[in-house]
Each structure stands twice: as C-alpha cells, then as structure tokens.
Design a protein around this nucleic acid. Structure first.
Length: 848
DNA sequence: CGTTCCCGCCACCCG
DNA sequence: CGGGTGGCGGGAACG
C-alpha cells in the first residue's frame, strides 16, 4: 500500500542516485523528497524521517512512560526548547506547502542522535524489570521509535555488552535492565585489570608526551616492548556466569566489535584511576594490539566514530558523561565515568554500598542479591604479579639517586587488584563510595566525631602493623610491602588469618617520624615535596610500570608544565590561582627549568632533595606510588624551624596519593586529571603539611579525635599512625576493610560505630573527591602525643560536598590551615582558594 | 575549521 | 538465496 510505496520510492531514489556522485549522507534533496512524500501521505511511518511534525510534539504515543520526555528534556534542554520552537513555527507556517524548504528544520540532527534515541529506547523498559520476560522485538522498536533498524542494533549491541539485554533469537532480545549491570561491571573491571589496561593507558600517555615534547631522542624500545609484552590476546566477549549463552543456537559467535569494543571501553573507565578516558587514548588502546605505530589515520577515525556511538549509549545510561580534558595541546574530548563504582571484587562487605550506588531509585534490594555471586572469575590465575618488587626497586633507585628507576613489568596497580592481598587497596573502591553517602551530609557534627574516632582506631591499627624504624627508605618499603598483606587483606575476602596479623607489629614510631609516601604507580609523575623549611622540590619518579626512560622525561616535563601550564588556565576565573600553589616560598622555579631534563638533572634533584631533607631534617619524602612509609630518621627539632605551623606541603600529582595496600591509601584524587596525559599535578595536587609539633594541632586532636571515645590520646601517635589515619580518613576504601577487621582494640562500642562511620566517611570522601575533582590539602599536625590531620578541599565543586569535607576535617583553629583553606565559601567558587590552593587547570571538565 | 556522529551501502552469516 | 546483522566510512550538521 502506500507505505510500501513510499518506501520503495525512497529506496529507489537512493539507489538510482548512487552512481553519480550522490553522497551517502542524505542531502536535502532526499530530505525534501521525504517530506514531500510524507505530506502526501500522512500515515507513513516506516520512513526514517519523522514525517509528521506533530508526532513528536503532541504526545508521544509510544512512550507510556512520561519519564521519557523528562529524560529527553533533561538530556538536552536547549535543544528541546529550540526544536519545539521551530516546530511550532513550522506548523503554523506549514500549511501546505511550499515550504518544502522547511525541510531540514525539523529533523535537526540532534533529534536523531543516538543518545536521544537511546533514551527513548530505555524509557520503554524499566531499569529493574520484575519479570525477566520482557522481550524486545527489534522491528517493533525500530518502528515505534521510527528509526531504521540499523540504529537499534547500535543501541542493543552496547546494551548487550553490559548484559542489559541478551539475544534470544533473531530479532528478539530479552530485557534485563540493570539487574546484571553491577556484576557485569565487576567482571569487566577484572578483565580490564588482567589486561593491564591501566598500564597500557599509561604508556600511551607517556608516549604522547615523549612525542610532543621530547624529540625523538630516545625512542624507547622499551615502551614498545612493554606494549607488546602485554600480550593480551584479543579478549573475546566478557560474559556473565549466569547468562552466558542465551541463544546459543541463534547466536553468531563472532563477537562483533561493537560489543567487545563497548566492553573494552567500559573497562578503561573501571580500571583507570581518574576514571576519565579520552577518546584518543581509548581509540588507541582499542585499536590496540596491533601496536604498529603506523598511524592508520582512517582506522583511527573509524574507531573514534564507533566510540562516539558507544559513548552516546553509555551516556544515556548515565554511566559516563562527556567532559573535556584540557591539555596544553588544546582540549580533547573525553568521558568521565559516572556510573557506580565497582569494587575490585569485594565481597559481601560492600554489597550495600554497591546496591546503593545504583543510580536509579529503583529497588535496591535487587542488586545486593545478585552481587552475592561474585565469583565470576576465579581469582587465581594471573595474580602472580607482585607489585612490591617494583616498589622496592623504586625505592632503591631513589636511594641510589643515580639509578634509574626500573619498573616492574607488571603494573603494580593491576597486580594489586588481581592479587588477593592488594585488592582492598585498589583505588577504585574509593571511587565507588560516593554515591552512597550523599544522603547524609547534613548531620555532620556527629559524624565528624565518629569519624574521628574511627580514625584513631584505624590509626592504631595501622600503627600496629607498621614497622618501627626504617633506616633507609628501602627498609620502609619492604616493611610496608610485607605488611601490606595484613592490612589489606581484611578488606578483601582475605582469609581471616591475615586480618589477625594486624595487631602487633609496630609499637610506636617516634613522634615526628618522617615518612615517605608512595604514590600509586600509575600516577607516576613528579612529586613535589615541601620540606619543612619550605623548600619545594620536585622529585622525579619513575613509574612502576617500567618505563624508566620515559618517565624521567615525562616527569620532568610534567613538572615544568606544572608551573607553566597551570598558569595558563583556560578558565578565566582561576588562572591566577595556580601560582599560589606555593604559598610558601618555593623553589618551583628550578623545576621549571627542568623541562625535559636529562637523567643528570634528575639525579641531581633527587640528590639534592635528599640532602636537603637531611639537612633540614625534613622527614618528608615523597615517592610516587601509594604507600606511606614511615621513615626512621626523623629529626624533629628542625622542622619546627620557623614556625610550628610550617608545614611541609607536598604536592602530589593529581591523584594524590593512593593508598598503599597496606597503608592506607590516600586517595587523593583528582581523578580526572589522570586520564588525560596531563600530569596529575596540575589537576589535583595534594598538599600535606606536616609540623612536627604544632600547637594548634594538638588541641584539636585531643578534642575531636581521640576523646570522643575516651581514648584519650592515642598511645603514641606515631607518624605512621597519622599517615594511616589520613589515609583512612581520606579516603581510602582500603581503610574500610581494615577497620572492620580490626579487632577493636580498645572499645568494642566504638568499633561498631566505627564501622558505620567508616561508611560515611568513605562515601563522602570519594564523592567529594571524584565529583569535585578535588584538590584538597591535607594538614597534619604532630605533637608528641597527638596528631591531627585536616583535609581541605581546594576546589569546591559542589557546595555540599565541600562543606562536608570541611567539617570533617576541620582544623582547629589552626592558623593557616583552616582559615585559608576553609575559606572557600561555597563550592562553586574556585578562585577563593587559599594560598595553598593549587589550581587544577589541566583538566577541565566541562559539564555538559 | 574541528568535532560529533548520522546515514546507509554492502559484506557477512545463518537458516 | 533471502533476510538479519552490523562493519565501515562519507560527509553533513553542529559548534
């Protein structure tokens, strides 16, 4: 009948045209023809082009759920309004016709976007269908949404990659909604880790740096080698245990790329610390393996196109959101993970969290249930990697100062994740926390208290675990590594036995003991250290991963960038801030000079750094990686030096410090930065202030932390304790497990509380950190008997979050700290940052 | 002009 | 061999 007729006609049009040079993309002509036809025959719906203008505006017949509209509008308000306007005008004007020209006005391209289409699609099905019998007929859907079938495939394929649907038979799919989503994500994360995606990303970024910055000077074979080494055979399609082969019969086994690509893409988010993935990097990784440098431009382009398709769907699912990463080279499109945080493989402990995490309000019960079965993949397997060795190496190298850093072949990160021990520490955990907490930001005072209590406990625990004195950096590391298991384990499913370990080890470190912070390997960049004396020096770090040569260069570069780049901010509001970073007189300048420094320079720096430390008595050493290591040789008097308040601020790279498996991690976070190549620094610097004996601090400590529970003061607030505490406080998920496991040293009651509290903390922090992309400063105060720490976010993104943070860690009247930092009145204002504030400029996330 | 990404040709593959 | 799938890339729309 007519419809058919139209269809044919259209087709013909296309087919006939092709010979000439008719472009594939429907030109206006085509459109025109459609419209004409349409007008003639009002009924036709098969055509892709939405014939009836009215259709859309009036009422969406197909969507029973009114939500859809909301969603859509939410998705693109502007567009909506604009469109509507247009439509109205058109309608009015549109009487019969002449207006063939109106043509394109209607179907603005956006209206046809995959994202919007996906929203419509999703609106038709519940997030958590009660029955598993929700079937989807592709034809039907396509028709209802008035789009070509082809487009539906695009959507369904990615949904399938997340196991939100599964193919039943030809043209038929089953709708699962988000029931399996979390499990799927866990599985994906795991696979991603196994594939060393984190490392790969790192490598790519490094390469980029090298290229743009460094001449080819050293082509690193190493890099290439490493890449190759990761001989990840193409991973197939990740399936969930429960539903592996739904339609075995009908299924074509050939795992199509879109599906797999989608999974890989998601993996990147789950694995990367900042949780921001730029298209460029993603494309490279996905193209992957081939590894040939040949910039197959077309291939790359195609990949990007596909990624956009996938990203649009994922965005509709609200798993990611588009952002822009600003780099020196300009801004690059990227996406940020906004979905639930996925814990490594935690077990039931985290169920609640996870369930809560699920965005949709729907039933929370469901998820938890499913999560129980998490044994998707057997743990054992490749977990042999040890990150410890690598760490150790780093340490040594540093010590030697001359040495280059060698990185372990395997990325520590991954290993940690995979490894049973380390699991708990993984950064990801932190991240996930966020969602949960939001509800309770308000009653903070109470919470604060609780938290503090927890901290103290945790600290104690930590303290116990830590080794006392370490003569040399190495020693600390080792000890740390050794210990890690104990601390870490608890969080993970680790056998109880491990947990038991915690208690004894460290009696107490002397109060002022310096420590080294080990940054997460992935972060490797330069680390800046503030010595008590206020000197700021960059430390080049190698990354564990093993790109030594690269690292050095990169690091240097980064450093330089830091200074300069920050200055140049795209965001007009905050440009200046960058400079402030070194409130203290810093020696930044030297750093800048470093641009692409040679090994020599590095060495020198290191050396210098060390020497300074010693001379200054600075106890603080920063290492990239994630561990906090107490250093034995602490000289307490000096630090105090000029003022009590002096602090040694450390700017860590964006991510700040990650927790060591053992120690806590300080998640620092700046999440997004990382994704970009940009050195973390810029983005989220972490400042740590240490004062050996700070007056102000002491009071605080006594008040809040310890006292709450009665525990008057911690026995010996050892620095190690502090560090741990901080970590716990801050952020680390790892902490949780630990806390829980803790035997409850002193007060049982507290313990119980603590657990609760812990949750709160975590939630809040992670949220803040991630959402805000915060930059925050940690202040530590040590007194002989007490230690105090405060965490202040430098960049407020969301008022609430920020607020929460402040309360949490408010410094007592601490001189500089509280005031300056807390200064940010509301989250929005970035400029207000105190002197310490370090601008994060590099990554700017543009909210949509 | 660069980014985003829609459209639909056409190769596969399966029944 | 017909029809479902979906890779793929041109080039339009958008900013």
């Amino acid at each position: 009948n007519i419809t058919g007729f139209l269809f044919l006609a259209v087709q013909e049009n296309h087919s006939s045209e092709p010979y000439r040079n008719v472009l594939k993309t429907p030109l206006k002509q085509t459109a025109t023809s459609h419209s004409v036809l349409t007008e003639i025959q009002p009924d036709c719906q098969p055509l892709t082009t939405p014939p009836k203008p009215q259709k859309i505006p009036p009422a969406d017949p197909w969507t029973p759920t009114s939500n859809l509209k909301i969603l859509i509008s939410a998705a693109s308000p502007e567009i909506r309004s604009r469109e509507q306007r247009r439509e109205l005008s058109n309608n009015t004007s549109q009487e019969h016709l002449s207006g063939d020209e109106y043509e394109k006005s209607h179907p603005s391209r956006k209206e046809k976007s995959l994202g919007l289409l996906c929203h419509k699609f999703l609106a038709r099905y519940p997030d958590y269908p009660s029955t598993e019998n929700d079937f989807i007929c592709l034809d039907e859907v396509a028709e209802k949404l008035s789009v070509e079938r082809r487009r539906i495939y695009d959507i369904v394929n990615v949904l399938e990659s997340l196991h939100m649907v599964s193919r039943l038979a030809k043209n038929r799919y089953v709708w699962h909604g988000r029931h399996h989503l979390f499990k799927t994500l866990q599985a994906l994360k795991k696979v991603g880790e196994e594939n060393k995606y984190t490392q790969q990303m790192q490598m790519i970024k490094k390469r980029e740096y090298e290229q743009e910055f460094d001449f080819e000077g050293e082509r690193n074979e190493e890099t290439a080698r490493n890449l190759d080494s990761s001989e990840h055979s193409e991973m197939p399609f990740v399936e969930l245990p429960g539903m592996e082969f739904h339609a075995a019969s009908v299924n074509s086994r050939k795992d199509k790329s879109l599906r797999v690509m989608s999974q890989k893409f998601v993996m990147l988010f789950l694995v990367s610390t900042p949780q921001v993935v730029s298209l460029e990097v993603a494309a490279k990784i996905l193209i992957g393996e081939d590894q040939l440098e040949d910039l197959d431009k077309s291939k790359f382009k195609t990949k990007i196109r596909r990624l956009y398709d996938i990203a649009n769907v994922l965005s509709s699912l609200e798993l990611i959101k588009k952002v822009h990463v600003t780099e020196e080279r300009g801004r690059k499109p990227a996406f940020k993970w906004t979905g639930p945080e996925v814990l490594p493989e935690s077990q039931d402990t985290k169920l609640e969290t996870t369930s809560t995490t699920c965005p949709p309000p729907v039933s929370e019960s469901i998820p938890s249930k499913e999560q129980c079965s998490k044994k998707l993949f057997p743990l054992r397997g490749k977990q042999n990697f040890t990150r410890h060795p690598s760490l150790i190496k780093l340490v040594k190298s540093i010590e030697n100062d001359r040495r280059k850093i060698q990185s372990a072949p395997t990325s520590p990160v991954k290993s940690s994740a995979s490894t049973d021990q380390n699991v708990s520490a993984s950064p990801s955990k932190m991240a996930q926390v966020p969602a949960i907490a939001k509800h309770q930001l308000e009653g903070q005072s109470k919470k604060v208290r609780v938290v503090k209590m927890e901290l103290s406990q945790s600290a104690l625990e930590c303290a116990l675990s830590l080794p006392e004195a370490v003569p040399k950096p190495e020693a600390p590391l080792r000890t740390a590594s050794t210990q890690q298991p104990a601390l870490t384990l608890p969080s993970s499913a680790g056998p109880p036995s491990h947990s038991s370990v915690s208690p004894v080890i460290l009696p107490h470190t002397p109060p002022g003991v310096p420590y080294a912070i080990y940054l997460h390997p992935s972060q490797t960049h330069t680390v800046t250290t503030y010595s008590p004396s206020f000197m700021l020096q960059p430390l080049p770090c190698t990354n564990v991963t093993g790109l030594k040569s690269i690292n050095s260069k990169v690091l240097n570069k980064v450093t330089s960038e830091e200074g300069d780049n920050q200055t140049a901010t795209d965001d007009p509001t905050k440009p200046l801030t960058a400079k402030e970073r070194p409130p203290i007189k810093s020696e930044t300048s030297p750093q800048r000079g470093l641009k692409r420094s040679q090994a020599l320079q590095e060495n020198n720096l290191i050396k210098r750094f060390r020497s300074d430390d010693k001379s200054l008595n600075t106890s603080l050493t920063f290492f990239p990686s994630g561990y906090l290591i107490p250093l034995t040789q602490y000289i307490h008097d000096t630090k105090a030096g000029s003022a009590d308040k002096e602090k040694a601020g450390i700017c860590s790279s964006q991510r700040a410090i990650y927790s060591s498996p053992i120690a806590g991690v300080i998640p620092g976070t700046a999440s997004e930065l990382k994704a970009v190549n940009i050195p973390a620094f810029h983005i989220t610097p972490l400042n740590i202030m240490l004062s050996p004996t700070s007056i102000g601090a002491a009071p605080v400590a006594s008040n809040s932390c310890l006292n709450s529970s009665n525990t008057s003061s911690v026995r010996n607030p050892s620095p190690s304790v502090l560090s741990f505490t901080l970590q716990h406080v801050g952020l680390i998920t790892a902490a949780n497990p630990a806390l829980q496991h803790v035997p409850a040293p002193s007060q049982p009651e507290n313990v119980s509380h603590s657990s609760e509290n812990t949750l709160l903390q975590e939630e809040k922090f992670p949220n803040i950190l991630q959402n805000l992309k915060l930059q925050f400063t940690l202040f530590f105060f040590f007194s002989e008997n007490n230690f105090l720490c405060s965490l202040q976010p430098c960049v407020p993104r969301e008022s609430q979050a920020q607020t929460a943070t402040e309360h949490f860690f408010r410094t007592p009247g601490g001189p500089n700290t509280g005031s300056s930092l807390s200064a940010n009145s509301d989250g929005t204002d970035r400029t207000s940052q105190g002197p310490l504030y370090i601008p994060q400029r590099k990554l700017e996330v543009s909210e949509d």
